[in-house]
């Protein structure tokens, strides 16, 4: 069985101060990748094994 890697899941600096107001006047981003989602509401594959 493959354990979940702690480095992948652990927050480096947990802090309750996580909602500091942003100073940015505009926030607009868009990212992209090859579309390969095949999940439905009865099942979801979260990882991208073999891709």
């Amino acid at each position: 069985m493959n354990p979940v890697s702690p480095e992948k899941t652990m927050l480096k600096n947990p802090s309750p101060e996580h909602r500091a107001p942003r100073k940015d006047q505009v926030i607009a981003t868009r990212k992209s990748c090859a579309a390969d989602g095949v999940g439905l509401s009865h099942y979801i594959l979260t990882e991208r094994k073999g891709h």
Partner: peptide
């Protein structure tokens, strides 16, 4: 995961995992 998918639909539409 179903909420994460809404976030992905906004941040990176092609990265969505759920196709509902």
């Amino acid at each position: 995961a179903n909420f994460a998918n809404i976030l992905l639909a906004i941040l990176a539409p092609t990265a969505r995992r759920l196709m509902c």
